[in-house]
Structures are given as C-alpha cells and as structure tokens.
Design a protein around this nucleic acid. Sequence first.
RNA 1: GCUCCCAUCGUCUAGAGGCCUAGGACACAGCCCUCUCAAGGCUGGUACGAGGGUUCGAAUCCCUCUGGGAGCGCCA
Length: 466
Amino acid sequence: MPTVRTRFAPSPTGLLHIGGVRTALFCWLYARRHGGTFILRVEDTDRERSTPEAVQVILDGMAWLGLHADEGPYYQTKRYDRYREVIRQWLAEGKAYHCWCSKEELETMRNAQLARKEKPRYDGRCRAGRDPVPGVTPVVRFRNPQEGAVVVADAVHGDVTFQNAELDDLIIERSDGNPTYNFCVVVDDYDMKVTHVIRGDDHLNNTPRQMNMLRAMGVEPPVYAHLPMILGPDGTKLSKRHGAVSVLAYREEGYLPEALLNYLARLGWSHGDQEIFTLEEMTALFDIADVNKSASAINPEKLAWINQQHLMRTPPARIVPELRWQLERLGVTGGSDSALEAVVIAQRERSQTLKEMAEASRFFFEAPAAYDEKAARKHLTAESAALLDQSKSALAALPDWEASAIHGVIRSQAEAGGFGLGRVAQPIRVAVAGGSVSPPIDQTLAILGRQETLARLEKAIAHAKR
RNA sequence: GCUCCCAUCGUCUAGAGGCCUAGGACACAGCCCUCUCAAGGCUGGUACGAGGGUUCGAAUCCCUCUGGGAGCGCCA
C-alpha cells in the first residue's frame, strides 16, 4: 500500500472561501489520518485571471487555519516545460493531434448541435488529420477513446459510469501554446504521485476524461472522492453575500480557526452524534467512508454556537492573543496577559465570537465614555446613590480584593436593606460597565481592580445625584 | 437540450430491512437556575418528496415521476 498523498489545488482567480477550505480540510485530514503527505498546488494556468494577490490570500488563509502543506506550493505556470514534453510525446504517439478548427468554425458547430437539441461537443473532424488552415494556429486535442465506458470508482458516490461516446476530444494545448486545466491536472497528479484526489463534486464530470488521459500516460488512476457542494444559508449557490468571502474574514469576525474547521467538517461528514471535535479528534476519526453525498447549506448560527463551544473549552491562554488582536482592532491596547486571561474566563460563556468578547470587554480597559441611557435611568437614581455610596465604603474597607470578598459585601448590603442582590448589583454594574450587562459583578470588580472600581463608583454617584 | 449527481425536522445530521410510534445538534417556545447577560439543565413542536414494486416486514433494496444541483469553454 503506497503512502497516502493528497493535494489541494485551488486556482488563484478568486478568493479562498468556505467551500475551498472544506476541501482543503478533508484532504489535510485524510493525509494526517494515514500518516501521508498533503500537497498544495496552485493552478494558475489561466494567466488572464490569476493574480499574485489571490495566491497570497490562499497562502495566508491556509496559514491561519493551520492547514500546513507537507509539499509545495507548486505552481503550474512553473511546469510548462513538462507539460509541453508530454504533449510532444503524445503527438508523436498519436495520442493527441492538431486541430485546425477556428473559433468561428467551432462556434458554428456548437450552434448547430444546440439547434438539434444535442449535447454540444467537438465532433472530431480533425481527428484523421487535416491540412493546415492558413491563418489558424492549431490547438492540440487529446484523442479520447470512442468506444466503451469509464467507471469512476468514487469513494463517496460509488461507481459512476460514463460512456466514452459522451466524451469529446478536449483541447490540451491552446493556440497560444498554453496547456489547459484538465490536462495539467493529469500530468501533475501523475508526477506528484497523488494517491487520493479529494475535490468538489463539480469535478465529477471531468473525471472520466482525466482517467482516460492518465491511462494514456500508462498508469491507473488514483482513488477519487468527490465532495458535495456547500450552499449558502438559503440553500442556493454560495455567493458574495453568503460565505463566499475570504476565510480571513472569519478571523476578523472573531472565529477560532479550529472552530471554523470543526463546523466545516460537520458539513458533509459526521461521527455519530458528536458535534464538537478538536483537531486531534478529527484527524483520528476522519474517514471518507463517512462523507455524505448531498449538498449542505451553511448555518451561521450553528457556526457561532460551535465557536462559543470552542471558546469555552480551549485553554484561556490560547485565547488571549486572539482577544488582544480583537481589542486592538477596537483601538483598545494594554492589559497584561494574566488580566486578559481573567477576562477570557469571565466572558467566554457569554460571547459567541472573539469580536463580541472584545466589544463586551472594552470597559475593563477604559472607563465607559457614557452610561447606557436606559440603564442609567433605571439604576443610577437618587435612591441608588445612597446604596452605591455604602457599597463604595464597604468595598474600600475590604482587606483583600478578590471575588468572594466582594460578593460578601454585595450580599450583606442586600441583606441589610432586605432586598435581592440585583438591587445592589445592578447600579454597581452600570457604574463600572456603563450598561446593564456584564459578567457576575464580583468577578467583574475583581478584574477591574479596587482603584478603578472606586473611581467609577464615585463618578456614578455624582451622576445619580444630579 | 444532452450527460452525470443528489433527495430524513427550517438547517446540519444519525439511520447500512425488523432495535424507528425515526435519535442528536443549531434555531425556536416554555420552565428551572439566577445579581444582569449568558452558560447549563429539563420539556415541547416540526422530517423519511410522490407513486409503484420486492419482502412476513422498508427511511433503509429496485423502478418511475417530481424537485434540486453540476458539467457540456482555446475557464478552472
């Protein structure tokens, strides 16, 4: 059994979006699971649309996700000599031939077929050879078998049979001398000794042609696994307004890479009823046999839930740099690692994303610019001013500034007044956080520190007395 | 139009002939917990696209239909 070799082969013509990431993930997981090699190959033969920026976006995205390649990135544009070599050889062996049809001629053929309600395809008119046509630079076509059938033994779909009669002779070299996609894929998968081709099922229809070309090279095709498509939340094709944005946008929105990967893995793959997986669990459990055949729609709410589950389970120290990055994006700097860690622990069960966490934690690092109007009207009243004042004195007198002692103060204040904790806690909460929502008040004050707490209480008392 | 693929709650899915009066998760509703918001716990509603077979028995196997998708390019 040869070592497993998988490849992720994006084309840098657009963005690396959710669909591409899921494909990359499955390739990566499969290689990891079997101690194999994961190859990154950039398919940039479309010189018109490929851009260095798009390449960089792919590289950055993969790096953020932690989907590191064991080999590559390879670039198809750097392999043109090899492609030409194969084409020359095929031409010599009769496996390929020159086609002198002009684009106009092909267009006419196509329209006629469409008019006859036939599947548009090349009719092979140059197959037997044709004299050079003046003014036309020929393309090279692969001589596809005309008889028999090709069976794709797909690891997720099972056997899928295509009649060779349905396939035409595809162009492998354009008139400008550049090789085409389907051909490059074949040469690359052959040269790179790819054992498992895991890709989107929009490629299922290309597979028989690729298999025929692989056989023309004298090898048996690799194992194919065609993954179902990922749809937008409304069940239609992914578009810009859905998730078809760069994966890096998910970092900005405050998602953990492992959470995004967990979510994506569960789109089309499952392991019983388990929903939350660490990367380690996924690599240990992943199997193509458990991959679904049907397309699935992304559900942003579930992604958010999974993200929160990861926020709650991941060691806080690992979250700290992510939170710091989000805070900096809000223009909030400072705070020691240990302070941020305490914030993470206080906020993780009340934040679905790191962005939310940063926004909700702003007040820990800077005094609220203004009180939430509604909250202030309700809790910073003349009568609560007296209560706030008492709390302030009691807190100032506390020997140790820690949560349980702070809780003791709040509780005795409430007991003394004969009312619930909320009556004491809410005004304090508004005073320190600026609004009526925060982590438990004792924990909040403990993180904030005595000095800052007292200062904010002072200010709130003044406000309440106005 | 032709070829190919797909089809269980709104969504993600479990289900490989009897364990299914269909299980879990997200979302939703109610209750509990409770200093706010959450988290957590409990409860509830909603699904096998339709029709034919095969079988003692079908969500599971076969056929047809319907619906969705992909491909059919000197794009990838």
